[in-house]
């Protein structure tokens, strides 16, 4: 039984049981390893991707329930063609170990899509499900504000 999935604009036929979470389809089957595994129980945000533009925890979405087009960090921008939000992350030198950052960026991107100029309180609300054990929060906050400015200018 094969399931069809559209990820970063490309269609994939996947032959895995229905209940395999999207996270593990992306990582182990399709080979998109930018999306990370942290907890598997929706408590860290490392696995955040977009489905039809909405930020979701891919560890919680079974393959059979994927309801729309999936965008992962690889679909946001590449080293040669960085998205504004990634440029803001670089400008602020956000990452430490970097493991949580794909999820942070995907979460922040969906915040900015809904709310182009979030306040600190709105950032607190939107980002508190994304854990960073290295404690990069101050720079994530600064990068979100910078990304907001960059995206306004664009």
């Amino acid at each position: 039984m094969s399931t069809t999935l559209k990820v970063n604009g490309k269609t994939h036929a996947v032959d895995l049981p229905d209940d395999v979470p999207l996270l593990w389809v992306l990582r182990d089957e399709i080979g998109l390893t930018g999306t990370k595994f942290g907890c598997g129980v929706a408590s860290c945000g490392a696995c955040t991707v977009h489905i039809d533009g909405e930020a979701v925890r891919s560890c919680q979405v079974p393959l059979s329930d994927v309801w729309g087009d999936v965008t992962t960090i690889e679909g946001v921008g590449t080293p040669d063609a960085l998205a504004a939000i990634q440029q803001a992350w670089i400008k602020n030198q956000v990452a430490q170990c970097g493991y949580c950052q794909s999820g942070q960026i995907m979460q922040a991107a969906s915040l900015l899509a809904e709310n182009p100029t979030p306040t600190d309180a709105e950032i607190d609300d939107a980002m508190q499900g994304n854990l960073c054990r290295c404690g990069t929060y101050p720079r994530i906050r600064a990068a979100i504000h910078d990304a907001a400015t960059l995206m306004q200018e664009a």
Binding site: Q86, W89, I90
Partner: peptide
């Protein structure tokens, strides 16, 4: 600028996993 930064914001850095 950290040499590992671009990889870490594009999901292209290779961690063990």
């Amino acid at each position: 600028p950290r040499v590992d930064m671009v990889g870490k914001v594009t999901g292209t850095s290779e961690f063990g996993i």
